[in-house]
């Protein structure tokens, strides 16, 4: 209630058409209530989601179901309104000449896609589940055909980048404006670390034969440690993302809802 009242600023009052968009182009018209009510509900649901931090509870479950239901419902609407209707339905049915627009003949061959797509729902059938593999097979076939080019474009520049010069020709510190061909000592050291890391981590994944050589064994152990460093970085950055998500929600509840401090 405090948050709701805090939203009712003089420039934010209820008017008869407060729910209408005032833009000159199509909008999603998703804002169907006064902002103060919307913010209060959003804050209430935010608190519901974070109540899980204390323990599993019905309030959290209720909010979780609302969230999943809304996201799924909106996605279905968006897929129809933005994809299926303009790209499939309209070209399929065409339209009569009206309002200066010439007649457009419907391309009814597009209708053949509907039963193929519906075959996917046979995945729920115990006796005819094999039918669902037909649309899945088409999708996988199309996807597989593109993978050679995709691999080439994505990974070849990565592999090429591991071939780096490791002998410096300048003993200055790194200069971002250095002319091409100048390799400063710190950059050379950086390159050396990258090359060693690449080799020892790759040696860890030599599973095709038994690692009898002591050199390969020690390299694999070093590779495992360096992998752990990499996983540590991923863990740290994951925590940063989760913390910022929480901070953003705290900002929403404390500043945007309760107005306990100045905005940005």
């Amino acid at each position: 209630m405090i948050g709701f009242l805090a939203q009712l600023q003089p420039n934010n009052v209820l008017t008869p058409d407060w729910w209408r968009g005032d833009q000159g182009y199509p909008t999603y018209d998703w804002q169907i209530m006064h902002p103060a009510i919307g913010v209060a509900i959003a804050a209430f649901l935010t608190l519901g989601l974070y109540s899980l931090l204390y323990k599993e509870n019905r309030f959290y479950r209720f909010v979780e179901h609302i969230f999943v239901g809304l996201a799924a419902g909106y996605s279905i609407y968006a897929i129809w309104a933005e994809v299926l209707y303009p790209q499939w339905w309209k070209p399929m049915v065409g339209h009569a000449a009206q309002g200066g627009m010439p007649i457009e003949i419907g391309h009814w061959a597009w209708a053949a896609l509907l039963p193929v797509g519906f075959l996917a729902f046979f995945v729920f059938s115990t006796t005819n589940a094999w039918l669902s593999r037909i649309p899945i097979g088409i999708i996988i076939g199309l996807w597989s055909g593109q993978q050679l080019g995709a691999f080439y474009d994505r990974y070849l520049p990565q592999i090429a980048d591991t071939a780096r010069p490791i002998f410096p020709n300048s003993w200055t510190l790194v200069d971002r404006n250095a002319p091409p061909g100048v390799l400063a000592a710190p950059q050379a050291l950086n390159n050396l670390i990258l090359v060693i890391t690449f080799i020892v981590v790759l040696s860890y994944f030599l599973y095709s034969f038994e690692q009898k050589s002591r050199l390969v064994q020690k390299s694999a152990v070093a590779g495992r440690w360096l992998l752990m460093v990499g996983f540590g970085v991923i863990f740290g950055t994951t925590m940063m993302t989760r913390f910022v998500l929480f901070i953003d929600r705290a900002y929403f509840v404390l500043i945007e809802w309760l107005k306990l401090g100045p905005p940005n």
Binding site: P157, Q158, A160, D161, G230, T237, T238, M240, T241
Partner: peptide, 17 residues
């Protein structure tokens, strides 16, 4: 990108992609 994506994508910056 988000911070959690950094470790995976920094090599693409290093390679010039």
């Amino acid at each position: 990108c988000t911070a959690v994506m950094a470790g995976e994508n920094i090599p693409y910056y290093a390679s010039g992609q």
